[in-house]
Design a protein around this nucleic acid. Structure first.
Length: 256
DNA sequence: ATGACAATCAGAGATTGA
């Protein structure tokens, strides 16, 4: 079973690229982030024609997550508990073929310090609480998404250039470590322990041709899912496509 | 210190992203 995460940076603008990639990569499940549309604006028909069901948690203008699946999915959560005032569409969770899968769009947090950074750290705590509940279920779980965290210096093209960015702050990295230390496996790093494994390249300053990237899209696996991990990958070539997203699809294969 | 680039909403330029 192939499970992917892909921050599309606007589903409307990215639909041709997404359809190309679905046909080529043939994932069983895809967690999308930054669909940037309300539920009614989601291209359900085009996605269905490509062979996928869609669960959508949209929002006007920005944010928005979705879960595409070849087999029908049962929604298990929409949003995170812990803050009734939070109206951002950043979390959607479903069960597909006995696997619990979450599509996560963790807040960027810039500029820091400030309220957006505080929101990021608080949102992280709410995610960690949900993750702990999911771990207790002892089933295969995949927490997939754009975490807006570069976990280690090797995950950043330049620590000095990014020094004041919310994505690399010690508090941000500590939250990611605390989450992982609950018992989650960072799938890409499990199979590629060393070296750069970028999943994002900024649109600006020629970041893509110069390979000045970041690793911020992650798939965290529960022990029951990690036991089944056979492959993981990053579809870098997608970044070179016409009107590409600034993120590329990142995926795992689990033996069921 | 700022802008570089892109998408959205709206219908110009602000907001958001990372």
């Amino acid at each position: 079973m192939k499970i992917a995460t892909f921050n599309v940076n606007g589903i409307t603008a990215r639909l041709p690229r997404l359809l190309d990639w679905l046909a080529e990569a043939e994932p069983d499940v895809v967690c999308l982030q930054e669909i940037k549309t309300v539920d009614a604006g989601f291209p359900t028909d085009a996605i269905a024609a490509a062979g996928y069901c869609a669960l959508v948690h949209g929002q006007k203008g920005f944010n928005g997550v979705a879960i595409l699946s070849k087999e029908p999915a049962t929604e298990t959560a929409r949003g995170l508990d812990g803050d009734p005032t939070d109206d951002h569409a950043r979390y959607l969770e479903a069960e597909v073929c006995g696997i619990r899968i979450a599509s996560i769009y963790l807040p960027n947090g810039n500029p820091q310090p400030g309220p957006k950074f505080d929101y990021k750290l608080a949102w992280f705590d709410r995610l960690a609480a949900r993750a702990r509940t999911l771990l207790a279920g002892e089933q295969p779980v995949v927490l997939a998404g754009d975490y807006n965290v570069c976990p280690e210096p090797v995950d950043v093209f330049s620590e000095s250039a990014m020094a004041t960015d919310a994505l690399v702050q010690p508090e941000t990295r500590a939250k990611f470590r605390a989450l992982a230390f609950q018992g989650w496996t960072d799938a890409i790093r499990a199979l590629q322990p060393n070296g750069a494994a970028f999943t994002f390249w900024d649109y600006q300053a020629g970041a893509w041709p110069r390979d000045l990237g970041l690793r911020i899209d992650h798939l965290l696996l529960s022990p029951a899912a990690a036991d089944r991990l056979t492959h993981a990958g990053i579809d870098r070539a997608v970044r070179g496509g016409e009107r590409a997203s600034d993120h590329v699809p990142t995926w795992v294969e689990l033996a069921l």
